[in-house]
Design a protein around this nucleic acid. Structure first.
Lengths: 211, 211
DNA sequence: TAGATTGTTAATCGATTAACAATC
DNA sequence: TAGATTGTTAATCGATTAACAATC
């Protein structure tokens, strides 16, 4: 079905298109255009059409796209037309914020466990479910087979956690620790690095004066 | 000084190189190579040399790079050789996590205010300083002239906040709300979107079966 | 000198943009 | 038909990779 490689940036834009379509649908809008999608996702109309064209022709010339059907198509492509189990390792402030983030639930992600090694945190309840000791990682993975793990532990601990997750059969890792994780394919890692983004901004501000 | 455009991805990698050099420095390592930097930042040696070459030749052929001097050079390029004031708008879990994140302090970012509109949150102290009502945004900006603002309010409120920040003279925005913000140049916005990253992973897992 | 590693050029690869025929 | 908007091709632009002379 996939005959050539699809750019990573295309996939990320599809996620944004998809969520915009969801908004339109909830607002009762039934038809839209590549231009409208672009305006509301920071893209361009040509880009939107190109991104969609990797997967097929889903619109009607002269008319546009049906919100409902395009939304369903994108959901299928992205794999958000099903539920995914995720776990969070590290019950610090960020781990808690992510565990309780409603945006994930709304997109079909179910949190099946949050872990920490700090005995003061273990047992504390969040949303009625207790924080578990990281010792129990393997047992919980056995039971719920989460596909995705979010790592919010300190940088030094992140690789160790990643290794164990791989052993547990976790297939994807979203890493918030500022480290480069080594995992064997086909396990995948995405890094979310706040500092990189902040420092990109400082660079921009400094270089404003140089141009 | 800047005669041609430097790729955004180069700047983001420089931030990672810089933080790796900081680690090396603290570990007492004095000399490194493009290969070593690459291995520890998920880059390649050619990429590292190319990224640096946009700004000059900072190494010694046959030898490598002096950790201390390269770190200082990168700090200057990125603008992290000075302090930056930042504010956080939205004292939800994510806003709190970011406000208290030590990684920012370590890189010279100083939090000069955290705001919320919820009267139950306003006045509550974090790190000895109270959460302020968003009404006081303009007054605080007047006093501390923050260069950077982190937006962690709900999506619906984000554009309104951004408009006010622009009015306050804030020059850069790091936006965590899942919306596209419109700001007039030269104000800059970076979006950090957790969901995009999660859905990129789900896409990867689904498409594994298709290749 | 022999070995190592940079800085830089040229080749390759990939993504974006522009343009327009197709078609409702 | 006139107007609108898609799907697709070709042109452009930009980033990565490979390779190697320069140089310690």
């Amino acid at each position: 079905m996939k005959y050539f490689r699809i750019p990573d940036v295309t996939i990320m834009r599809l996620s944004m298109y998809s969520r915009y379509l969801d908004r339109l649908q909830k607002a009762g809008v039934t038809v839209t255009s590549s231009q409208d999608i672009a305006d509301n996702t920071g893209s361009t109309s040509a880009q939107v059409r190109k991104d969609l064209a990797y997967f097929g022709g889903f619109g009607v010339r002269g008319v546009g796209y049906t919100v409902k059907s395009l939304y369903e198509i994108l959901s299928g492509i992205l794999g958000v037309d099903r539920d995914w189990n995720l776990i969070v390792i590290g019950a610090g402030r960020l781990g808690m914020a992510l565990s309780l983030y409603q945006g994930f639930n709304r997109r079909g992600f179910t949190n099946v466990g949050i872990f920490d090694v700090d005995p003061r945190k273990v047992g504390r309840k969040i949303q009625g479910r207790p924080i578990l000791h990281t010792d129990r990682l393997e047992a919980v993975c056995e039971e719920h087979s989460p596909d995705i793990a979010l790592i919010t532990v300190p940088a030094e601990a992140a690789q160790g956690v990643a290794d164990r997750l791989v052993g547990c059969g976790v297939r994807s890792i979203l890493n918030f620790a500022p480290t480069v994780l080594q995992v064997p394919p086909p396990v995948r890692v995405r890094n979310v690095d706040f500092t990189v983004n902040l420092e990109f901004l400082t660079y921009s501000m400094v270089s404003d004066f140089l141009e």
